[in-house]
Structure formats: structure tokens, C-alpha cells
């Protein structure tokens, strides 16, 4: 950003957009988003891509904006519209209840810790475990049930977090107003010459496969292109996709 503050650049982009220079506004917003993020930045960027009819990138940036500011209903309504314009059913947006959102996994874990330790201290100090004592039985039952419930909540939240960290949005290799005829191919092998298992519509959410160490499974071809193994949300369709054919929703080191 050449040492300029993100605020100044943001205002420059707003002025560029207001003056009708959408390309320049996109360029500035994109440059800012390489360094830092804000909900308004990504929402404006999504808005611009929408105006430029690049709906898949609009979907991507609305997802980023919603991640930063999940309570904004405008973003959600606009995301639905962008998805529809991209030819994707908004039903794919339905996720778990907000309580199990990845952002709540720390709360679940803290609650689990407090509950678990409290029960343990109660038993070790105040209550002597005696078989046949009904009060002990009920307290132990509540403690075990509560621990399992909070553990389950943390587990679901953790799973959602893992899923979100693997989620990418399929994009056309270059910012273009018309989608490729057959969509983005998920290839059988990591190579341009390989046939496609299936084609996905740009803007579709895909999920990267992880290797045994927890990193995305990848392959670097002789030409230097990096390929990743991705699959659809249902998990049924999978194949290799080039790095320039998708962008992650969150910041990932790929």
C-alpha cells in the first residue's frame, strides 16, 4: 500500500467509485484487502464486483464481510442475490445454528472447562462419593450430562471451524464478466490435460481436502502451477483445481 494508511486508501476508493471509475476502486480495495480487512471494505468490494457482473467474486467478498460482521442483514440479503445471479441456490447458505458458529468455539470450551472443574471440585471437597446416595447420584448425573452437552457443543463448533478453514469459492481464472461455458472443472488428475470429474459453477463453495498433517492436499506441476484437491459441500464431487481458480473465504496459507 506504499505506506499509505488503509483509511486514506479506502476513502480514495470510495471517491473513485463515486466518480464511476469502478476498475480503479476495485484495484484500491483489493490492494487494501491484501494487508488488512474490514466488513465495509469487503462489502464495497463485493458491491463493485456485482456491478461489474462478476458475481462469483461478489459472493466471495460478501462471505468475507459476513464473517467479520455476521449481524448485518444487508450483507446476507445481498449475498443471496449475488448467489442467485451466479446461478447458485441460496439454500447452500443454510448452515448450523449460530450458537455453533466457529466464532463461539472459545466460549464453548471455556464453559466446558468451568463446568467440568466445578463438578470435580464439588465432588472432591464437598461430596463424598458414596454408592446408593441419591443426591450424589443426581449431582453426578447432571455433571456428566452437562459435560457431555458442552463437549458436544464445542465439538460441533470446532467442526464448523475446520470446515470454514477449508472453504474456498470457485472463481474464473481472471476477472471476467461472462462465466466459462462449462464452469470450473474439477479434474481427475492435477494437470491441464486431465478430464474433469465434474464442473462447478463459479461462486460455488468448495472444500479443500486435508492431508494427514492437517494441511490442504496439494501438488505442484512442472510448470509451477499449484493444484489442490477440492470437493463439493456434499462431498460427492471432487477433483483437482488450480490455485488461480479459487480463493479462500478466510486467510489461508496456500
Amino acid at each position: 500500500m506504499n505506506g499509505e494508511s488503509p483509511n486514506k486508501l479506502f476513502y480514495d476508493a470510495v471517491r473513485a467509485e463515486a466518480s464511476g471509475d469502478l476498475d480503479k476502486a476495485i484495484e484500491i480495495y483489493s490492494a487494501i484487502s491484501q494487508e488488512t480487512h474490514s466488513a465495509n471494505l469487503h462489502a464495497n468490494l463485493a458491491n463493485l464486483f456485482f456491478k461489474m457482473k462478476d458475481y462469483p467474486r461478489s459472493v466471495l467478498h460478501f462471505r468475507k464481510a459476513i464473517w467479520i460482521n455476521p449481524g448485518n442483514r444487508d450483507y446476507r440479503a445481498n449475498l443471496v442475490l449475488a448467489l442467485e445471479m451466479a446461478g447458485i441456490s441460496p439454500k447452500d447458505l443454510t448452515g448450523p445454528p449460530p450458537s455453533f458458529s466457529p466464532r463461539f468455539q472459545t466460549y464453548w470450551l471455556v464453559a466446558l472447562s468451568i463446568f467440568f472443574w466445578s463438578g470435580l471440585l464439588l465432588f472432591s471437597y464437598f461430596l463424598r462419593p458414596r454408592l446408593g446416595n441419591s443426591s450424589t447420584f443426581w449431582v453426578a448425573g447432571i455433571w456428566i450430562t452437562g459435560t457431555f452437552f458442552l463437549g458436544w457443543g464445542f465439538f460441533l463448533s470446532r467442526m464448523e471451524s475446520t470446515k470454514l478453514n477449508r472453504e474456498v469459492i470457485a472463481l474464473s481464472p481472471s476477472s471476467q464478466t461472462e462465466d466459462p461455458a462449462n464452469g470450473i472443472p474439477l479434474r481427475v488428475f492435477a494437470g491441464d490435460g486431465s478430464s474433469a470429474n465434474t464442473n462447478v459453477t463459479p461462486g460455488t463453495s468448495l472444500f479443500l481436502d486435508l492431508d494427514t498433517k492437517g494441511f490442504p492436499r496439494s501438488h505442484q506441476s512442472q510448470s509451477g502451477e499449484k493444484w489442490f484437491l477440492a470437493r463439493s459441500s456434499s462431498g460427492t464431487n471432487k477433483g483437482w483445481i488450480k490455485r488461480n481458480e479459487f480463493d479462500p473465504v478466510l486467510d489461508l496459507h496456500l
Partner: peptide
Amino acid sequence: ASQDLFQTESEPGNWINKLATPNP
């Protein structure tokens, strides 16, 4: 513009350094 349903935000809002899920 093809369609302009969105209202451009004129303020950047709060900046965050990284888009990532929290590590508990």
C-alpha cells in the same frame, strides 16, 4: 452498473489484521 441494490459504505469501519477462526 447492471444493478445497484447496495449502498456503498463511506467509512471503513474497524480494521482487523487477519480473517481467521479463533483458536480456543
